[in-house]
């Protein structure tokens, strides 16, 4: 993992990428949530291709778990099996609703932010964000808006003979409905925030719409699956390339193709040319 230099970060909206799954390849998350095509039937003489999904992206269930965790995977695999069975038996399958998620450019809640709960028993209380589920516009605040619930893996506990005790668990708060709002650092009142360019025009900062004061980004917001703080990341010896080597520029533009460059380097001297052919 490399820390990007200032040159690469200039005036680009990198704040949209902030999140725990930031460095997880999108294809991996799709594969794990099974939101990938099982087969694409193409070559239909111009008619649009038919996609047969493993699990349609609208049917994917997002919740208080990372997509690659075992709990999520088990849930989706049963859905995938049912969907395939329904299709083979030509039965009707009701699709889920598309996700009405807030676009990344307008998302202002980050992990570790001070927010105020606007509904329920803890209305008016302030707390820090512990967990975010962007796909459902959910935010879990530490220690607030809790409910007495029994843990999810009931069957496993029963098998092991462990008695079920209800515990307090945080419930999700919807940002789109205004159930939770950021706290303005000036007057400590709930406010809405937006991303604007700073004075140098070099980076984006969060600014409260009411007072215009900057809301600083907490350091834990940069936490990902790989590291808690990008500065503390240690490169893996035989797998990662160091920052210096990665950003070292060795490219010299020249009037030769990639293949010609490599042939020259390897000492392949090919004088023969392709004979003319017809394309139809």
């Amino acid at each position: 993992m490399t820390t990007l230099t200032k040159v690469l970060l200039r005036a680009s909206n990198k704040y949209t990428e902030l999140g725990y799954n930031r460095h997880m390849p999108k294809s991996y998350v799709e594969r794990v949530t099974q939101a990938v095509p099982r087969r694409v039937y193409d070559n239909r003489f111009g008619a649009p291709a038919i996609t047969r999904w493993r699990l349609h992206p609208d049917d994917v269930e997002h919740g208080e778990f990372r997509p690659w965790e075992q709990k999520a995977v088990n849930n989706t695999l049963t859905k995938v099996r049912d969907y395939h069975k329904h299709k083979l038996m030509q039965k009707y399958h009701q699709r889920g609703l598309p996700q009405q998620r807030i676009p990344d450019e307008l998302w202002t809640m980050l992990k570790g932010d001070l927010v105020q709960v606007m509904i329920g028993k803890d209305k008016g209380k302030k707390g820090k964000i512990a967990y975010i589920v962007k796909e459902r516009n959910w935010v879990f605040v530490e220690g607030l808006h809790m409910k007495r619930t029994i843990s999810d893996d009931l069957e496993r506990m029963k098998k092991m003979g462990v008695q079920q005790f209800p515990s307090l668990r945080e419930q999700p708060l919807d940002v789109a409905k205004g159930e939770v709002m950021l706290v303005d650092p000036k007057d400590e009142q709930p406010c809405e925030a937006e991303w604007v360019l700073n004075e140098d025009q070099s980076d984006y900062i969060r600014v409260s719409k009411e007072s215009g004061v900057e809301i600083p980004i907490p350091s834990i917001a940069f936490q990902t699956y790989e590291y808690n703080d990008p500065k503390t990341y240690r490169e893996v010896e035989l797998k990662d390339t160091s920052v210096e080597l990665t950003l070292e520029r060795t490219y010299k533009p020249s009037l030769s193709t990639f293949e010609e460059d490599i042939s020259k380097e390897q000492g392949i001297d090919e004088r023969r040319t392709l004979k003319p052919t017809y394309w139809y």
Partner: peptide, 9 residues
């Protein structure tokens, strides 16, 4: 994009 053909190969 910073790398030469040889490095990329």
């Amino acid at each position: 994009r910073l790398k030469s053909s040889s490095d990329l190969h």
